[in-house]
Design a binder for these strands. Structure first.
Lengths: 254, 254
DNA sequence: CGGGTTCGTGTATTTTTTACACTAGCCATA
DNA sequence: TATGGCTAGTGTAAAAAATACACGAACCCG
């Protein structure tokens, strides 16, 4: 057992973020330069991902790789699927890029998809001119709005789709929604988040009734300040209470 | 790309079966013999599993491996988790066995767990004296009752646990239950199946009300014959109707 | 023909879900 | 300091879904 990279196994991370308005995903740039020269042949977008080391499990590798590429550290991260199509890297553009960076384009690679949810305002990404990254990968990590993404590398568009589907199902039964929200949030903010994830609108009064019934969402004696309208009450998620109550069925929406 | 085995990646299959009474799982025997001789040092139980080939995706590999080991062919098979603990093969018994069959016990192996559901009476397993299998693995595929399994190889007990948990969640939202039943089945049979999977009893009249509300469970004009009690009506699952209706939410139990 | 077994069914009560509209509070600005 | 623009916060009635519960009918066997 050693710390070398395993050329057959990689992880790719789909990091969703929410800025209290819309749903975003964290992507890097991949560049292909002319051999020797600096001329750019193409650039496109990738999910943060890389090969695992032989002494790591997949979860550890996902944490490490995400940190190395984006500076994000110690965040909720969960495997949601494995992508193992033998032809998943066979697109000519990808083959060309792999060859250019010195990999064998024939090598079989399966990748484990990880997904994560973070409150956008809480984290700072590495800056554009990240010195530790080579000039062909891992540049310019940025948040992209979900409905405005084009031109993704490899099979990453499919991985992203799959992650979104997984997220939609997951929020129906587990309290992962709170991973996307700041520690304290208003009822409207969490309702809007459900709406952008599910792509449909919800009834305000009914939503608040359900919210009020969840014992693990506790209402704080604190209100918004400085807003140009009635200030809203803040709520927070109590993991303690949830752990004690989680046998009960849990629905925030129907 | 070639057809060699990939020493880093395997699949293991958890095949659940239902004999209209209890829930079973399909296991093989693993033997360790004294070097050279025929003396048996130990034998224990394993899930059917093996390494993938470099030109297969995981789904294909799972189908192939299951067929080679048990003769089961073309059945519903779905990945449910990946097990990637770097120490998952480090138990001395397992290290000894790996060395004995000529593998490097140091090699890092991650495994994809697949699960399947089949109506027990429909399939015939390879017989004990299967000639195509070596004498240290893949012998004697048999159905084992879930609550009476001891002594499993590697981390297979954990994989099995994880599969059962997955099954319990899955039957709550997708019509996989029908994969465990014969084509035609009675209301009591499907209710009993839910009960053995979930480990709790359900109310007969309420269960049947819900069953009657599922348009994709169609009632046949056919009854049991030769039973020593009121003959029960048969039902069947219509995948056609399900596909057309599946946007609707689906619960058979609550 | 009697005993043993499983089948099949209805109703009343409680809980959950849905649909729906107006006043109150804060800021900005005129 | 009055007004306009904006979002917060709230209740009720009707419909749908979930629950609890018991007994006669049909068949085989001996």
């Amino acid at each position: 057992m050693n710390t070398a990279f395993n050329e057959n196994i990689s992880v790719d991370c789909v990091i969703f973020g929410y800025d209290l308005k819309s749903l975003k995903v964290l992507l890097l740039e991949r560049h292909l330069h002319k051999a020797g020269g600096k001329d750019l042949i193409f650039k496109d977008l990738t999910l943060p991902g890389n090969h695992i080391r032989n002494n790591e499990d997949l979860d550890t590798a996902a944490q490490r790789i995400l940190f190395e590429l984006t500076g994000l550290n110690d965040i909720y991260l969960e495997q949601f699927a494995v992508f193992s199509d033998p032809n998943r890297l066979d697109n000519p553009k990808d083959q060309q890029w792999l060859a250019a960076i010195g990999k064998d384009p024939q090598t079989r690679v399966i990748t484990a998809g990880y997904f994560s949810l973070i409150p956008l305002e809480k984290y700072y990404l590495k800056q554009n001119g990240n010195d530790t990254m080579p000039d062909w990968y891992g540049k310019n990590p940025r948040w992209h709005q979900l409905d405005r993404i084009a031109n993704m590398a490899f099979d990453h568009a499919r991985i992203l789709d799959s992650a979104l589907q997984f997220l939609r199902e997951k929020i129906m039964s587990k309290p992962v929604i709170f991973e996307l929200l700041p520690e304290k949030f208003t009822a409207s903010q969490i309702q809007n988040l459900y709406e952008v994830i599910l792509g449909k609108t919800l009834d305000k009064r009914n939503f608040r009734k359900k919210l009020a019934n969840l014992e693990f969402v506790v209402s704080l004696n604190e209100k918004q300040m400085g807003v140009a309208h009635t200030p809203a009450r803040y709520y927070m998620f109590s993991r303690d209470v949830y752990e004690r109550k989680k046998k009960e069925k849990f629905t925030l929406i129907t």
